[in-house]
Write a protein that binds this DNA or RNA. Structure first.
Lengths: 290, 290
DNA sequence: TTTTATGATTGGTTTTATCAATAATGGTGA
DNA sequence: TCACCATTATTGATAAAACCAATCATAAAA
């Protein structure tokens, strides 16, 4: 009368038996006794009124029905686990502040959207600032997380990915590339790009002048597209109005920089832990695609 | 330690509560007592450590988490039911003989394939014959099922669908349509198409001659495509080499015929029951598409 | 053959799901 | 405001089940 319902616990045991190849090993994995697993298998067979396994010698083999049920079981369990972790995720609540350099704001919207879908009860605040400043804030525990750029192999934080830097000029206009090179730079002392650029030029024996400075890339854009200066950006930050310079331009090569995630010194809150993981997952791979 | 696993029984109760809108009604539907359902709901909330419902006045409302779980529950239960019925279907075994008119063999392959996928342990035999002969065989219990064509509103069997009949000639050649009309017909006495054709012509005061006869459509095809005779077929049996005649041809209108399923007189075997259901499901709808 | 590893079986214990009965809650009509 | 009704929550008792520990059975390996 009552609708027939499979017991997911038994299906999990079935899968464990299949994975490990033996009842005893499955019992060990699931922290049951051997007898329990044996009886669970029998129970499944009784409920379905089917023979799921047979025994040839000491080795266990599944019947075709058993194999069939296994595929159903795996699908059901996958759905169960998804449902469960989703329900758990909805219990994560709290507030959370993430700091990012202004120019990286464009990289994160999809991550924020996904995060909000997984953890709708978490209030997420995003602040922008220079990498140097954000690191100080996260050290002072004023913010929970900071995603910053920095030179290679700097200490602290977790490297999310490494990105190549490139020289770029306006798509239609470009400045004279003879010494001194006219640079458009972020505000002094706060930006990694500036440090890297000046070190590279110095190492190559070139001279330069800081033609323009601004707090952000947005402020530099009109100067660069007008052909008045050269700028340094990551390859992922190139826009249609920027043209990267290759080696033939005579500009010195630039090193990779790192995108690193810093966490506040105390034990991270659950929301912070989750966002950190998500950022790592979502931002990790594409480093070679850039 | 042990992997978190949802109890599908509880999820089924949750869905019932949602469907009926009340704990008491859900209990009635599931043949539980009211207290059991009430406790099942609590158990779900305890296991997930979540509040799934709240109560405003006497009315019950689900929280957003409850609604969320409901969507998971419905998906899980759908998968469960599918898995269950699939496993049950595999237990159906036996042998089964179905009779069909030769010209309908082309209509069934997809049904047979599907049937074999659902019931791999059933041995299915298909025999071909004239509708009249098949009906006798199924009445004598020599075969389990017979899918036959017949005139409208004939007694016995179950009507699967009704199909229009059409006059057809070769795609490139066509006979003179003056009396007496040259007909290509199936073997006398065994075929419904013949009866219908002759009745229609007679009612219209036309004369005809039976130019060719054969046991099957296959035998008539060359005669018809050569432009030597007119044939009667269902619209679904038209091939690229056949051209249907519309009213402008002057041929009398033909009635609908029925496709009917006859079952052997004794209680049908489980495989026969299942194939019958499948045939009804798969062949029912497209009558207006023809 | 003895040994060893594995799965099945048995007996006993604990946990759990269920029911029946009862209490609580909130809305309705007198 | 007070009964009264419908619905849900709670309690206590009971029956069922799931599980474990120990034992038995079996087949391969030594």
């Amino acid at each position: 009368m009552r609708a027939p319902t499979l017991d997911l616990t038994l299906l999990r045991t079935l899968v464990a038996i299949s994975d490990t190849g033996s009842v005893t090993a499955a019992a060990k994995r699931l922290a049951y006794t051997q007898s329990t697993v044996s009886m669970q298998l029998q129970r499944l067979e009784t409920q379905l009124a089917l023979r799921l396994h047979e025994r040839e010698g000491r080795r266990l083999r599944f019947t075709s029905e058993g194999e069939r049920l296994l595929t159903h079981a795996r699908r059901l369990l996958a759905l169960n686990d998804e449902a469960w972790s989703d329900m758990q995720a909805r219990q994560v609540t709290g507030d959370l502040t993430l700091g990012i350099p202004e120019d990286y704001a464009s990289l994160l919207p999809s991550v924020f959207a996904y995060f909000n879908q997984l953890y709708p009860s978490v209030g997420l605040t995003v602040i922008c600032g220079t990498s140097a400043h954000l690191v100080e804030q996260v050290k002072a525990a004023e913010i929970d997380l900071a995603l910053v750029t920095r030179q290679r192999n700097s200490p602290g934080g977790e490297v999310i990915r490494r990105e190549p830097l490139v020289w770029a000029v306006g798509i239609n206009q470009q400045p004279l590339l003879s010494d001194p090179i006219p640079l458009a730079l972020y505000s002094p002392g706060a930006d990694v790009f500036r440090e890297v650029a000046e070190q590279s030029l110095q190492a190559a024996g070139r001279t330069w002048r800081v033609a323009y400075t601004s707090q952000s890339m947005a402020g530099l854009a009109p100067i660069v597209t007008a052909g008045l200066a050269v700028v340094v950006v990551t390859r992922s930050m190139l826009t249609p109005s920027l043209r990267p310079l290759d080696e033939s331009s005579g500009m010195p090569a630039l090193p990779l920089i790192e995108l690193a995630l810093h966490r506040a010194p105390h034990r991270p809150s659950e929301p912070a832990r989750r966002l950190g993981e998500l950022i790592r997952e979502q931002l990790a791979a594409p480093s070679q695609a850039l």
